[in-house]
Nucleic acid binder design. Structure first.
Lengths: 249, 249
DNA sequence: GCCGATTTGTCCGTATGTATC
DNA sequence: CGATACATACGGACAAATCGG
């Protein structure tokens, strides 16, 4: 799908970095060099580099060059940036995924659901509760709410396989932005029933609202992870702080 | 610091969105309109919009316009994107921060520290252990390792006030990228000693490596948060899956 | 269904500023 | 100081998606 030039340059550089064609801390070729190499404009090279920066792969330094700061992840991370289905994320971590559907229902949002999920009261939804296994061990409990209007035809069989494949492939839904919140919550009776928690009394919880390309909220999911199999990674950049004079006093 | 034009447009639009000058789901003015409004080029407007998109504030739709998808956070969030000092983050959440220094030492990295922090064996470091209070309640336990070579002159007094102010202000260090990992870990004896955990037996743990603008790792921090006061937010975007040849047929 | 107007997406070339060496 | 490198900004061109007539 993305055959844009900046994207192919981005992927090419990314692969070179990952395969250590450039050493850690080494400078990448200058923009000027890359322009010649890829036969494109400066803007296009800069855009590719901007994406690598956002990924935490490189660090441009004014007047000096662009430094490779990529370090391969030693330990498998469960969740990293982007929006991924359970199957995609399991595959990235080389684990065998499987799913058991615990509940599958058609419901109508009430006040309580509105407050939790963001779907307005009266909205027609699917509610799905699923247990997720990695290499045969139950580790994640998912509660999904899907907007029926945009996800019609969902079945337990699809829920067991891959909802995202169905939505993107069969229905042609375009998944766009997702707003996620990560918290740590006490275990519930349902958690305890299905997941062997050892002596943990907390779960790592990712709550997310997902929008399609029309900006319509079509999914709310609460994904409850057993702590020891949970890891979330992120790259942040420093922003200059705007100034709050009253603190200085 | 950032007096760049795109940045002022970004901040202006951001404030308008936050103060609901544009309603949720409403379209922003078109690029053409914004160009006239701000008296700048199209690229400059587009760059500001790109930043708002990365923040999850808006969603550009090809051929249609740019939609406002910002929803104010109901519950105070403790940690969101970016690199923030404890004081900055407390202020953003309108809480009164205070800090007690539990340990302050000069150490040399050994094998174990190298493995945990990424500092090579033999590196001269400061090790600081601090207890963080919000509105007088102890909620966070921080373990910091700073590279002495780049952070010389640190004292317990500075550690109690603000290390970042000292590094950025006095030393002129420029903080750049940070690689963070979020996990949930069992409480330690030290956690229990200083933080009233109720019956939680886990902590939310953010481990981060921070680099300066020369790409040098100068800080490793492990920040252990009491679960009920912890919240992490994120906006993700769906990346097109690279190759489905059958679609092209 | 076609066409044209609007809007965003991609790409180019150029100019100027600023930091580094 | 000049050369090199990245940062910002401008203006223009064409493509692709959407919408209304």
């Amino acid at each position: 799908m993305p055959k844009a030039k900046y994207n192919s340059i981005y992927r090419d550089l990314k692969e070179k970095i990952e395969t250590e064609a450039y050493a850690y801390q080494e400078m990448l070729p200058s923009e000027h060099t890359l322009i010649a190499e890829y036969g494109c404009s400066r803007n296009t090279v800069r855009r590719a580099i901007a994406e690598l920066t956002a990924d935490g792969y490189v660090q441009p330094m004014h007047g000096k060059g662009v430094r490779n700061i990529f370090q391969p992840v030693k330990q498998a991370a469960f969740t990293v940036g982007g929006i991924e289905s359970f199957r995609e994320s399991a595959a990235r971590n080389r684990r065998r995924p499987s799913t058991k559907v615990l509940q599958f229902a058609q419901i109508t949002a009430d006040e309580k659901i509105q407050k939790r999920t963001g779907f307005l009261k009266g909205t027609e939804l699917y509610y799905i509760q699923r247990l997720r296994f990695l290499n045969g061990e139950p580790l994640i409990l998912d509660h999904n709410y899907f907007l029926r209007e945009l996800t019609s035809g969902l079945t337990p069989a699809i829920a067991e396989r891959s909802v995202y494949d169905y939505l993107e492939g069969t229905l042609g839904l375009t998944i766009s932005t997702s707003r996620r919140t990560l918290t740590v919550e006490r275990v519930t009776q349902v958690d305890e029933k299905y997941i062997d928690l050892h002596d943990y009394n907390c779960m790592a919880v990712i709550s997310s609202q997902t929008f399609d390309d029309n900006g319509i909220l079509f999914e709310f999911t609460q994904s409850r992870h057993r702590p020891d199999y949970f890891r979330f990674q992120d790259v942040a950049t420093r922003r200059r702080v705007p100034a709050f004079p009253e603190w200085e006093a």
